[in-house]
Simulated assay, not measured.
Amino acid sequence: MYKVTVYVTYKDSVLDPQGEAVKGAVHRMGYETIEDIRIGKYFEIQVSKDEENVEQVIEEICDKLLANVVMETYRYDIQEVEA
């Protein structure tokens, strides 16, 4: 089996309003050295060992469903694990 971890975040050129709100709260807590906070999405996907094109399948899922590729970017890590 494969365990795939997918991280989706806004592109650097896109304003992240949730990240800005959290950054403001962190600053109000006294942590002025925090320069930026970005909020994202995290997914764990388990893929059958029978799948031969794990990377291709994950790319398609990310492009079609998990990320809005106009505004967001994604990265993933594929690990082979015991079932």
Rank of each mutant, 00 (worst) to 15 (best):
M1V: 11
Y2L: 07
Y2P: 00
K3H: 10
K3P: 02
V4P: 05
V4D: 03
T5G: 04
V6L: 08
V6D: 00
V6W: 01
Y7Q: 12
V8S: 00
V8G: 02
T9R: 11
Y10W: 10
Y10L: 15
K11Y: 05
K11I: 06
K11L: 06
D12F: 11
D12S: 15
D12M: 13
S13M: 13
S13D: 15
V14C: 07
V14Q: 10
V14F: 01
L15S: 07
D16F: 03
D16P: 00
P17M: 05
P17R: 05
P17W: 06
Q18Y: 08
G19W: 09
E20G: 00
E20W: 04
E20V: 10
A21L: 12
A21G: 07
A21C: 11
V22P: 02
V22T: 05
K23T: 06
K23W: 00
G24S: 13
V26Y: 03
R28N: 13
R28H: 13
R28V: 06
M29C: 11
M29Q: 11
G30Y: 05
G30L: 07
I34F: 14
I34D: 01
D36N: 15
I37M: 08
R38L: 08
R38Q: 14
I39D: 01
I39K: 11
I39S: 07
G40C: 05
G40F: 11
G40R: 05
G40Y: 07
K41H: 06
K41T: 07
Y42V: 02
Y42P: 05
Y42C: 01
E44S: 09
E44D: 08
I45V: 15
I45Q: 06
I45H: 06
Q46T: 13
V47S: 01
D50W: 03
D50M: 10
D50R: 13
E52Y: 02
N53Y: 11
V54E: 01
E55S: 13
E55W: 01
Q56M: 12
Q56H: 09
V57T: 11
I58H: 05
I58L: 10
I58D: 00
I58Q: 01
E59W: 07
E59C: 07
E60A: 12
E60M: 09
E60I: 07
E60F: 08
D63T: 09
L65W: 09
L65E: 08
L65M: 14
L66P: 01
L66T: 03
L66Y: 00
L66M: 08
A67P: 04
A67W: 04
N68A: 10
N68E: 12
V69K: 15
V70D: 04
V70T: 14
V70C: 01
E72Y: 00
T73P: 03
T73A: 11
T73R: 12
T73E: 14
T73V: 10
Y74L: 01
Y74W: 12
R75Y: 06
Y76Q: 02
Y76C: 02
I78A: 00
I78T: 03
I78F: 05
V81H: 09
E82W: 04
A83S: 08
